[in-house]
Nucleic acid binder design. Structure first.
Lengths: 201, 201
DNA sequence: GTCTATAAAACGATAGAC
DNA sequence: GTCTATCGTTTTATAGAC
């Protein structure tokens, strides 16, 4: 499927990527098998390879299309807005992403954990550049005394770590909290308190 | 090797576990192969299986022996000590663990990320119980007004997330920071600031 | 205890019928 | 476009010589 054109091609490509997300996010690249993906997708294995030339190609398509989504919340942090509200908004959007797209979070986590063998380019390029740009915005806000003076890059790391933890370590979080508690609702409140105190000038 | 006895048995078991840590932490259980582990260990594949009955057994031995180490810093948080100093000490010890044992951190991360299929028992038992016990200690300190009132369990989650991030996402952290910066030194300073502000009553 | 050789199953990918 | 059948390889694990 070099370029999906017909409706059925688009639909099947989507079905495959959806199934692949399930399997890759649960087992990593090498741990995932085409048999599993085919079964989840409800297609035969050769049919998978009719739409994508290889296992590698499916994984690559997944990562590429997800990177954009994953960086959107940071991209939306506006230099012209109110500093505290902008950072808080970023934290909130990132936590919502963890809540609504936990498989995507785990897919990225596994990839980076394993040394990012299939995503180095994106990290060294797009991701690094975006962080550098937003770090400057944060630095300006700090220099103006509108938020507390902190290392801006580690501030971004902290937001990634604290929000993605709830998706990536979901099993542990739910086990430790026990039944009847809503991890994401509680995390939202906790993180609002945390960043309110941390950012106060 | 049901029970290592002789010196050579102990030494080879250690060599195998050390090599297995390398490979499992980099590729996860299914992504790792006995061939790889054997090559890193400098032993033949059948020799590996002379010391451990199966791939599963090697992985299990690794996880079991590492869980204790991983929980030690939290275990050392002393109810009789100074609250702020105790939490700070926990953060520091946990960050040192990330710095000195990043492979162990990634091994646990991959396991939990994948739904903890080989560690559920430990999480539901030992880990959950320890967190519950220490959450009570934190709650007491909060009730006494000695640290700020927060959800104690999410406070523990935040320490896990913020410290383990530097080991688990090492590649990303180093790429974004760029050369010539020491992630762990900077993280130490950042986290001390963060928890100082967060915990102030 | 350690090796070579190999069994048995699973894996990514292809051939070719329809 | 989708299937069955299968190739060639890799993988876990075992057999048996030494």
């Amino acid at each position: 499927m070099p370029r999906p054109k017909t409706r059925i091609q688009i639909r099947n490509s989507e079905t495959i990527l959806e199934a692949a997300l399930d399997v890759f996010s649960a087992h990593g690249f090498r741990g995932a098998t085409l048999d599993q993906i085919a079964e989840v997708a409800g297609l035969s294995k050769p049919n998978l390879l009719y739409y994508f030339p290889s296992k590698e190609a499916i994984h690559h398509a997944l990562l590429t299309r997800l990177l954009a989504t994953w960086l959107d919340p940071l991209r939306d942090m506006d230099a012209a807005g109110d500093p505290v509200a902008e950072v808080m908004g970023y934290v909130r959007r990132k936590l919502e992403l963890s809540r609504d797209y936990p498989r995507e979070s785990r897919l990225f986590a596994i990839e980076i954990l394993q040394g990012a063998p299939r995503m180095r380019e994106a990290i060294e390029g797009e991701l690094k550049a975006l962080v550098a740009q937003k770090a400057k915005v944060l630095q300006t806000w700090m220099d103006e005394g509108r938020i507390a003076r902190l290392d801006p890059v580690h501030l971004v790391f902290s937001i990634w770590a604290l929000t993605q933890h709830y998706a990536d370590f979901d099993v542990q979080v739910r086990t430790v909290l026990g039944d009847g508690r809503d991890p994401y609702a509680e995390a939202g409140a906790f993180l609002e308190t945390l960043y309110t105190r941390l950012l106060a000038p």
